[in-house]
């Protein structure tokens, strides 16, 4: 913790940053914290409970526009940051990226390549709870599964908190706001909620960092992160991890698997 606080303080003192995005203590769980001046750095914390994906703030122009920004990034945030770079959404010269381990040790990354290198050398944190739930859903028959998701999604009232929490949902006009034509019905109903979630998940294929922030964000506790988790696992299994900017859905390789087409 000290290491992180000292590092950030030093950055402000040297004038290297105008803003640092990290966590502070919250009422129940840690919450995002935006440091604007050196003395606030001492409120920064970082531990296993710091799970919200902070990368989501990097594309918010109102927050970071014109500012030299630092960020303390978890494993998943680093993944999102690398993807955001691949999608031309970040500029390296305005950013100071620090990976922080759950024990609090700080690692500075000076390039996207370094982040990617770190990610490929680090195994993703285990997700025993998610895997167990996905296992249960996998074991269901198709009609049981349909009922499960119908029941869950019937609760959704389209607040789009899942979208707001997602670092990859940075479009200025989301598909749900496109009305010529109106691909997705704007009101909340089981069918149109499904349209929304299916679209959301497909739009994240090959891009999702699997951080689970969408599920955490949902005020109704709908486990929408299981959809992206399952999708991420499927993509990894069938197409591997792309080393380049190419996306699983945008590129074709002659040896791509087709065994999921029935």
């Amino acid at each position: 913790m000290r290491e992180l606080q000292d590092t950030v303080k030093a950055l402000f003192d040297k004038g290297e940053i105008d803003l640092f995005i990290g966590y502070e203590k919250g009422t129940r769980t840690p919450r995002p914290f935006f440091v604007h001046k050196a003395e606030d750095a001492e409120n920064l914390i970082f531990d296993a409970a710091c799970s919200g994906n902070l990368a989501v703030y990097l594309t918010r122009k109102d927050l970071t526009g014109g500012k030299k920004t630092g960020i303390s990034a978890s494993y998943y945030a680093l993944k999102s940051i690398a993807q955001l770079f691949d999608e031309n959404q970040l500029k390296a010269e305005n950013l100071r990226i620090f990976g922080v381990s759950e024990e609090g040790s700080v690692q500075f990354f000076d390039s996207v390549a370094a982040i990617k290198q770190h990610l490929s050398a680090t195994p993703p944190p285990a997700k025993p709870d998610e895997d167990e739930l996905v296992g249960k859903i996998n074991a269901m028959t198709a009609s049981e599964r349909w009922k499960f998701w119908s029941d869950e999604l019937s609760k959704c009232f389209k607040c789009y908190a899942c979208r707001a929490a997602c670092p990859m949902c940075y479009c200025t006009k989301c598909i749900v706001e496109v009305n010529r034509p109106q691909w997705i019905q704007p009101w909340a109903s089981t069918l149109s909620n499904m349209e929304w979630q299916i679209n959301r998940v497909m739009h994240l294929a090959g891009r999702c960092s699997d951080c689970g922030s969408c599920g955490t964000a949902c005020p109704l506790g709908i486990p929408v992160h299981l959809l992206t988790h399952k999708m991420s696992e499927t993509v990894k299994e069938h197409f591997g991890v792309s080393e380049t900017k190419e996306n699983v859905l945008s590129t074709f390789k002659p040896d791509d698997k087709e065994n999921f087409i029935h």
């Binding site: 031309n88 959404q89 200025t172 190419e246 590129t251």
Partner: peptide, 12 residues
Amino acid sequence: STCVGCFLCETA
């Protein structure tokens, strides 16, 4: 433009 410049279309 509503284009966000992700340029994934470029890869496609």
